[in-house]
Design a protein around this nucleic acid. Structure first.
Length: 461
RNA sequence: UCCCCGGUAGCUCAGCUGGUAGAGCAAGCGGCUGUUAACCGCUGGGUCGCAGGUUCGAGUCCUGCCCGGGGAGCCA
């Protein structure tokens, strides 16, 4: 394969023959020379192609090039006399591979992200979206890398599931029944036993329960894949389809989990700073001033720890009014979380041991009988970025909790079975992948950090 | 789902207390000896989201609907 433009720009040798293929970002003509800014998506910086009027086809091809045209250039790398680039490509031939029509919507100026979402098939050609997707790719790679280096097995949790992780939200139904003509039982209800899987099935809302199966056999596993929520939530932080990372460890308690969260986040963010430096400069300058320092701060600061009970008393002492009043037993709102991480400690904060009443049934009950071993990792500006818990591995307590939550033990027979045979303390957390990408890039809307966003009322592309 | 804000040229927007629609960029044409989102000149381009209403007259005021954005809740 020929070098990408990124490689030519970074390490191309002056004087050597070179070729480049890509899309024209902008063209600047003057009487005796034309400059073409050519990009191929491999880096923020493109290569400057210099075309002289003596070039074959200059009038017919080069003078007619516009933003978006796909071309192939042969030539030689030369030292650039102009500012802004180390080398440039002095063309000896330029071939038009694919032209653009007059209504090509992308221009060499900035567009609103709202408009770009309506042309999701073309928006990765913009600086910003290409940079986002490069960072997204490095983040995914860094996640796999961290887990591999630490002995975790990537467990492929099912997308179609018949279990529902309680409290995780509304689900999308999976069925082959034709709308309106589903078979009915004698009682007049839909007869799911005749459906494709012989029962009700949905798209997964979490791979956690399956991950627990993995942890209780392979010690350390993680899931990383698409997850679905049919919630009608219309915000800059929610998607109906998103990617979730869920590690699960056997022989691990809440302290061990907190340590994992910290080293995991530091690894992933650190790798992005290292490997996407040019893109991070762009985000820092053009998208969210200060984002780079914020990420560096998370990578270099030890995370603070605090129990929920302590957090509540710190909030009660706070010299400010909250929209939602604080008292022991209420769930923390985003304003509370941000106050804690930004004002009280000024760095990432792990809040632990929440009231049992506001957390899920599968979280380990503390000896005090009123709190559970749950944790949230809070970071400045975003608030909660990770949520996790030590799991209830004692069958008796788990049954009690399920009964209190009005859950049918029959449906969770295999989950309970794990507590009957070789049960051990185990713990895990869940992390919304797009939220991490949002956090590191500073992008304001989650719809702009995933190539094809699915949200209520919208699934084009 | 709730609360706010918005919808004017292909894009980004301006358009005051109602008087018959404008800029920059893009597109087309021309110019300019090396540019950096180049620059300069000319040209074309609009059922002002949709439907009603008030008025001599509505982009502007009123009502309803549709779509989008921001915030909140829920959460990841």
């Amino acid at each position: 394969m020929r070098p990408l433009i990124r490689e030519l720009v970074a390490s191309g040798v002056v004087g050597e023959a070179a070729e480049a293929q890509g899309w024209v970002r902008s063209v600047r003509h003057s009487k005796g020379v034309s400059f073409i800014d050519l990009v191929d998506g491999s880096s923020m910086a493109g290569i400057q192609v210099v075309a002289n009027p003596e070039l074959p086809g200059y009038e017919e091809v080069v003078r007619k090039l516009g933003t978006g045209c796909a071309i192939e250039v042969q030539g030689a790398l030369t030292e650039s006399p102009g500012k802004g680039q180390r080398v440039e490509l002095a063309a000896t031939s330029i071939d038009l591979i694919g032209g653009v029509e007059d209504d090509y919507p992308l221009q060499k100026k900035r567009h609103g992200f709202e408009f770009l979402r309506t042309i999701a098939h073309l928006r990765p050609r913009t600086n910003t979206l290409a940079a986002v997707f490069r960072v997204r790719n490095e983040a995914a790679a860094a996640i796999h890398e961290f887990f591999r280096e630490n002995g975790f097995v990537w467990l492929h949790a099912p997308i179609i599931t018949s279990s529902d992780a309680e409290g995780a939200g509304e689900m999308f139904r999976v069925s082959t029944f034709e709308p309106g003509s589903a078979p009915k039982t004698e009682a007049g209800e839909t007869d799911w036993s005749q459906d494709f899987f012989g029962r009700e099935t949905h798209l997964t809302v979490s791979g956690q329960l399956e991950a627990e199966i993995g942890a209780l056999s392979m010690s350390r596993v993680y899931t990383f894949g698409p997850t679905f929520r049919a919630e009608n939530s219309n915000t800059a932080r929610h998607l109906a389809e998103f990617w979730m990372v869920e590690p699960e460890l056997a022989f691990c308690d809440l302290d061990g989990l907190a340590e994992l969260c910290e080293s995991f986040l530091k690894h992933v963010l650190g790798r992005i700073l290292e490997r996407c430096s040019e893109d991070m400069d762009f985000f820092d300058q053009r998208i969210d001033k200060g984002v780079r320092a914020r990420i560096e701060h998370v990578v270099s600061s030890p995370f603070e720890r605090m129990t929920y009970t302590e957090a509540i008393s710190r909030l009660e002492q706070a010299d400010r009014d909250f929209e939602f009043p604080v008292s022991w037993g209420v769930d923390l709102q985003s304003e509370h979380e941000r106050h804690l991480t930004e004002e009280v400690v000024g760095r990432p904060l792990v809040v632990t041991d929440y009231p049992e009443s506001i957390k899920a049934f599968y979280m380990y009950r503390n000896d005090d009988g009123k709190t559970v071993r749950a944790l949230d990792v809070l970071v400045p500006r975003i608030g909660e970025i990770v949520g996790g818990s030590q799991r209830e591995h004692r069958e008796g307590v788990l049954r009690e909790r399920m009964a209190a939550s009005d859950l049918d033990p029959e449906r969770y027979w295999w989950y309970l079975d794990l507590r009957r045979h070789g049960s051990v303390p185990h713990a895990g957390f869940g992390l919304g992948f797009e939220r991490v990408v949002q956090f590191v890039t500073g992008m304001a809307n989650i719809r702009d950090v995933i190539p094809f966003p699915r949200v209520p009322g919208s699934a084009e592309f």
